[in-house]
């Protein structure tokens, strides 16, 4: 780890004015400190934002939306009874990620800006356009077990590893950020960038901007009765997703009035396709319908290496997640373990 300046500002203004190129925000540290240890990140200045006041609450706003302060710890949010009741698949997604210890440390703001698990990104000795623009992509032609099958480019095939981001995308969450030029809002759909020609630009955050809150719109609560997050992984727990899906339905009189679903671990951002959701609207829930919608969501998928199987797995995962959502949010949320076990195979 390189030597760095450490500062712990006491106010948001102080934090924002402390920022300089090459600085990094430190929240829970579960991702930043890890990457500083591998050498994949080497900030000259670390700005500890964990003591900034007013960013650690979960509040209901007058317009019916729910605002989560960026410094709320992942586990605090997931175990907040009101929050978990209103947004069960968000709680389920959080609790299917990492470990109890990491969730206790990681902040929700930090979760959204966690970096990819691509081994070549994490290793500073490998070429990586995302880490060191212009050096190339060592993952292409390499070991691609964990890589993208949709939305990738010839510059980068990394995926976004966040579980949390997937239901947030499905529920049209809004990211509130503060920066040198004031506060603004970024829709989740626009928050994470696909790599294209500039994989180094991972998010819509401008230099010096800091996430201060995440907001779930009032309408997101309407899905609470039929919401699930399903994660397929290679261990029963404490593993990143091979494929995941956050699925939520609003069912009225046996008909799907509105559907939202997003796929995780298949792209550099949570993958949502409006046309696929639209196919579900005004239809009765059913396995064939779910399968068609999942197929549609992955219509543009293509292997980025020896990972064509992930397309099939993602389709199956989305199909199942929709079926689980249709079957209803379990009485006890989050269901456990958040693997496919403890769940009927034919919901």
């Amino acid at each position: 780890m390189n030597l760095f300046d450490y500062i712990r500002p006491a106010s948001l203004d102080e934090a924002l004015s402390a920022w300089e190129p090459g600085a990094a925000w430190l929240g829970g540290g579960t991702n930043l400190v890890d990457l500083m240890k591998t050498g994949a990140m080497a900030p000259g200045k670390v700005i500890d934002v964990t003591r900034l006041p007013g960013l650690d609450g979960i509040e209901s706003l007058p317009d019916g939306s729910t605002r989560i302060g960026a410094l709320v710890r992942n586990s605090t949010l997931a175990h907040d009874p009101d929050f978990a009741a209103d947004f069960p698949m968000v709680a389920e997604a959080i609790l299917s990620g990492a470990s109890g210890q990491l969730r206790n440390a990681a902040t929700v703001g930090g979760n959204l800006v966690q970096r990819t698990r691509c081994a070549y990104f994490q290793d500073p000795w490998s070429p990586c356009n995302r880490r060191d623009p212009g050096t190339g992509c060592a993952a292409i032609g390499g070991e691609t077990h964990n890589h993208a099958v949709i939305g990738w480019s010839d510059r980068c095939i990394a995926t976004n590893p966040s579980d949390f981001a997937v239901p947030l995308a499905a529920l049209d969450a809004v990211v509130e950020v503060a920066g040198p030029s004031g506060q603004r809002e970024i829709a989740m759909a626009a928050f994470h960038h696909l790599p294209g020609d500039t994989p180094e630009t991972e998010t819509a955050l401008a230099p010096g901007e800091l996430i201060v809150a995440i907001r779930l719109p009032a309408g997101a609560r309407a899905f609470r009765a039929n919401s699930r997050y399903l994660k397929v992984r290679e261990r029963t727990s404490f593993a990143f997703a091979l494929a995941s899906c956050a699925a939520s339905l609003r069912i009225e009189d046996g008909t799907i009035a509105e559907a939202r679903f997003a796929l995780g671990a298949v792209a550099a951002k949570p993958w949502r396709v409006a046309e696929a959701e639209a196919m579900l609207t005004a239809q009765p829930p059913g396995a064939a319908l779910f399968s068609q919608a999942a197929e549609r969501a992955l219509q543009d998928a293509a292997p980025s290496g020896e990972n064509a199987w992930k397309i099939d797995l993602a389709r199956r995962t989305a199909t199942r997640a929709l079926a689980l959502a249709a079957a209803g949010t379990p009485a006890r949320m989050p269901a456990l373990p958040a693997s496919t076990f403890g769940e009927p195979a034919h919901a």
């Binding site: 540290g29 579960t30 400190v33 670390v46 990491l102 206790n104």
Partner: peptide, 8 residues
């Protein structure tokens, strides 16, 4: 409970 290794 947290991981002491990732806590500066």
């Amino acid at each position: 409970r947290v991981n002491a290794c990732l806590t500066l």
